[in-house]
């Protein structure tokens, strides 16, 4: 965009940047003024709803109500007639390779590999880094991929997996490393026997820093005298890790694990950029997007979304339990 167009947009920019906060402050100040006009007894009853009101409207309107409507759409044909479980039948009928099954299989790969590798690597890095003085510096380098978009991550890793035919110098990092070991280059993102793992590896590279940062904070929360006592008793470092550090970190590992599970189920951007879901790399989120925008199949898209919801429900219940347990301790 050149400066001319930018200047022509400037008034809009100013209006938006100043106007949006002004509206928000005006809302809360204006309604409070109105509340003060009410009789004393009513104020405490009305006021809370004014403060939570906008949030409730948004959460209800953008998440809860649409989820209910999607459940309904998943039972309808494109014309809006009730068709029972037909959409689910189409998505889940042809086990093991038809309908949504490839996507479901890949989401299971994601769920297991992405979650476990990110947790494992995150824990390893947290423990190793805890022992060096330049910890903060190396941690922020590992964490950096968290700041970039999954789209940029996809470009970065497509470039890592770049393929040139055998005999030509390999310009992709991964294939060049294979070349050092006299292996033939592979078409990493188009070969169904490896492409899912290649994509999951790329996504895991991006998220490991997240697991590391949280696990590292939990590690630092372990009292030093506890570890000292174990060392005085003659326990080796590995025993200390297995018997003292790991059990104490377990609650955090579980919390990070559930977050990663949700990320794995929602996986979309990386797949969209690296393969578009082709070559048997489809995942549920991408399948839903394709059904909605390329096939115009709202019922099918809704059914896929409901399958995703079904997968999330255990995590959701677990989160609520955790939350209530924490509340009970308050």
């Amino acid at each position: 965009m050149d400066w001319g167009t930018f200047l022509s947009q400037l008034p809009i920019v100013v209006i938006v940047i100043v106007g949006v906060p002004a509206v928000l402050v005006a809302y809360i100040v204006g309604t409070e003024y109105l509340v003060r006009l009410l009789p004393d007894a009513f104020r405490p009853r009305v006021r809370p709803w004014i403060w939570v009101g906008p949030a409730l409207i948004f959460v209800f309107g953008f998440l809860i109500l649409p989820a209910i409507l999607t459940a309904k759409t998943s039972l309808e044909s494109g014309a809006g007639d009730f068709v029972g479980l037909q959409n689910y039948q189409r998505q889940l009928g042809d086990f093991p390779t038809g309908g949504a099954w490839i996507a479901i299989r890949n989401n299971v790969y994601w769920l297991i590999l992405y979650t476990l590798v990110a947790l494992g690597f995150g824990l390893l890095l947290a423990v190793l880094f805890d022992r060096v003085r330049y910890e903060t510096f190396v941690k922020s380098l590992i964490f950096m991929p968290m700041a970039i978009s999954a789209v940029a991550l996809g470009v970065i890793w497509k470039f890592m997996y770049w393929y040139q035919p055998p005999g030509v110098p390999q310009t992709g990092t991964v294939n060049a490393i294979l070349g050092i070991f006299h292996q033939d280059p592979r078409i990493w993102v188009q070969d169904p026997s490896v492409d899912n793992f290649a994509i999951i590896a790329a996504a895991t590279w991006g998220i490991t820093g997240f697991a590391m940062v949280i696990l590292s904070a939990a590690l630092k929360g372990i009292p030093a005298d506890l570890l000292e006592a174990a060392r005085v008793d003659g326990a080796g470092e590995i025993t200390i890790f297995r018997r003292v550090i790991f059990p104490l970190m377990m609650p955090t590992v579980v919390v990070v694990g559930t977050t990663l599970v949700i990320f794995a189920l929602k996986a979309f951007d990386v797949v969209y950029v690296m393969t578009g879901g082709n070559f048997e790399t489809d995942v549920l989120a991408n399948r839903m997007y394709k059904l909605l925008f390329f096939s115009g199949n709202q019922g099918g898209a809704a059914a896929v979304a409901m399958i995703l919801l079904a997968a999330v429900v255990p995590v959701l219940i677990f989160n609520l339990r955790q939350f209530r347990a924490v509340e009970a301790r308050r």
Partner: peptide
């Protein structure tokens, strides 16, 4: 609870 709900559920409506 809503924290865990996939955004996909809301797109169509």
């Amino acid at each position: 609870g809503v924290l865990a709900i996939p955004l996909q559920l809301s797109f169509v409506p």
